[in-house]
Design a protein around this nucleic acid. Structure first.
Lengths: 204, 204
DNA sequence: ATTTGCATGTAAAATGTTACATGATTGC
DNA sequence: GCAATCATGTAACATTTTACATGCAAAT
C-alpha cells in the first residue's frame, strides 16, 4: 500500500462521490475543498496509478465525446474500506508556519507603519475569505439541499467562518494595542537577553 | 543571496535579539515561536552557513566553558537591513492542509461515532493548546515585563488564543449538529453527483 | 487562426523532517 | 559507568509545487 500518503485518501474520498478522471478530481478539489485541502497534478496522477495498482480503485479507459482519451477511475470495496479506516485513524495536527506571526514576533525591529500594513493586509484577506465562504454557502444551499453530505460540507465551511472571524477580531485587537505602543523605528534597544526558559513542550 | 528562504529570516530575527549559536537558536525557537514557526537542525545549520557567506551575519569560533567548540553568530547591519526588508514585504498566506476537515468532508462515508471521536480529539488538542499559552503568558509577564518586545510576543500569543477559542466553539457547534444527523453508517447513498460548480477562486 | 478548455503525464526544484554520525561534558 | 545535555553537521527521504511536454476539440 506504499507510503501513508494523504493524497491517496483524498482521491478515495472524491471517488466515493462518483467515478471520474484525474482531471475531474482536480477540478472538484478546486471547487470544494481548496480552502483547506488542495492537490496538484504532480501528486494526483502518480497517486491514481498507485491506487490502481494497489487494487483500491478500478481504471477504465474511455473515449469522451470529442474522441479524447479519458481514464475514468472508480472506487471499489477495498478502497471504500481504506477510506473509512483512514477516517477512523487519529489525526496528526498539521505543521503550522505562519510567516505573518514570525514577522510580528520581531515587530520591535521595524517601524509601526510596517506592522500596521502587515496586519491590515492580513485582515483584508480574512474578510475576503469570509465573503467567499458566504458565496459557496449560498450555492450549496441552492444546489445541494437534501443531499446527505450537505451537513458535512457545511461543517467545513463553518470552520472557515469561525476561523476567519476570530482572526479578524485578533487583527482589530492587535491594531488597537499597536497604536498605543511607542514607535521606536527600526533601531530598537537591543541585547537584554530573552526571558524564555525551557518550556515543557506539550507533547503531540 | 540564494533562495528566498524563510529560515534565513527567522535566523536573522533571533540573532537580532542577541548573538548565539545554532544550537541556541534551535532552543529559543522551541521555547518561543514553536507554536507558529519551527526549524530543524537540517535547515538551521546550512542556512547559518549561507547567511555567513552572504555577509549578513558574522561567525566567531569560540570555546565554551567545557572546552567544547561553539560557533557564535552575530547579526550585522546588512543582516538587520535584510530582516527589516523582509518584514516590509507582502506576506503570502501559508498553504493550508487540514486533514481533520478532509476526513469530515467525507463524513457521510463513515459512522457518527467516528466523526465524533475525531472532533473530540481535535477539541482536546485545542484546549491543551490554550492551557499551554496561558503558561507561556504568565512566564512572559513575570520574566519580561518592561521588555520592549513583550507586546509583540503577546500579539502572537493572543493570536493562538483567539484561534483556539474559535476552533473550540466550532467543535461544540459541530458536535451538536452532528448529534441530530441520521447515522447512516459507512454505507451511505452514493452517486447523485456533487453540486459544485466552477467557483471564481479569490485570487491571492 | 487563435485562444481556451479538456486531458494526461513527467521532470525538476524547493522545502522540510528524520535519522545518522560524532564527540565532549556534566550529573547521577 | 551511564544517561542526558551540549554541539555541529550530513545524508537520506518525503512532500509538494511548478514548469514542461504533448495534443485534440470547441468556441471566438
Amino acid at each position: 500500500m506504499a507510503a501513508p500518503n494523504r493524497t491517496q485518501f483524498a482521491i478515495l474520498g472524491f471517488l466515493s462521490l462518483g467515478s471520474m478522471s484525474g482531471y475531474d478530481i482536480k477540478k472538484l478539489v478546486e471547487e470544494s475543498t481548496a480552502n483547506f485541502w488542495s492537490e496538484s497534478f504532480g501528486q494526483l496522477y502518480p497517486a491514481l496509478q498507485k491506487l490502481s495498482e494497489g487494487g483500491l480503485i478500478e481504471k477504465q479507459a474511455t473515449i469522451s465525446e470529442g474522441g479524447r482519451p479519458r481514464h475514468i477511475y472508480s472506487i471499489n470495496d477495498r478502497g471504500r474500506e481504506a477510506l473509512a479506516a483512514w477516517q477512523r485513524e487519529p489525526t496528526a495536527p498539521p505543521p503550522v508556519r505562519i510567516e505573518l506571526l514570525l514577522k510580528l514576533f520581531f515587530g520591535a525591529r521595524c517601524d509601526r507603519a510596517t506592522n500596521r500594513r502587515q496586519l491590515l493586509a492580513y485582515r483584508e484577506q480574512m474578510v475576503s475569505d469570509l465573503e467567499h465562504y458566504r458565496t459557496i454557502k449560498e450555492r450549496l444551499r441552492r444546489g445541494a439541499s437534501g443531499n446527505a453530505e450537505l451537513p458535512y460540507w457545511l461543517f467545513t465551511l463553518r470552520f472557515g467562518e469561525h476561523d476567519r472571524a476570530a482572526h479578524i477580531a485578533w487583527c482589530d485587537e492587535t491594531l488597537a494595542v499597536l497604536d498605543e505602543l511607542p514607535d521606536v523605528g527600526s533601531e530598537a534597544g537591543e541585547e537584554g537577553n530573552p526571558p524564555w526558559q525551557a518550556s515543557t513542550r506539550t507533547g503531540t
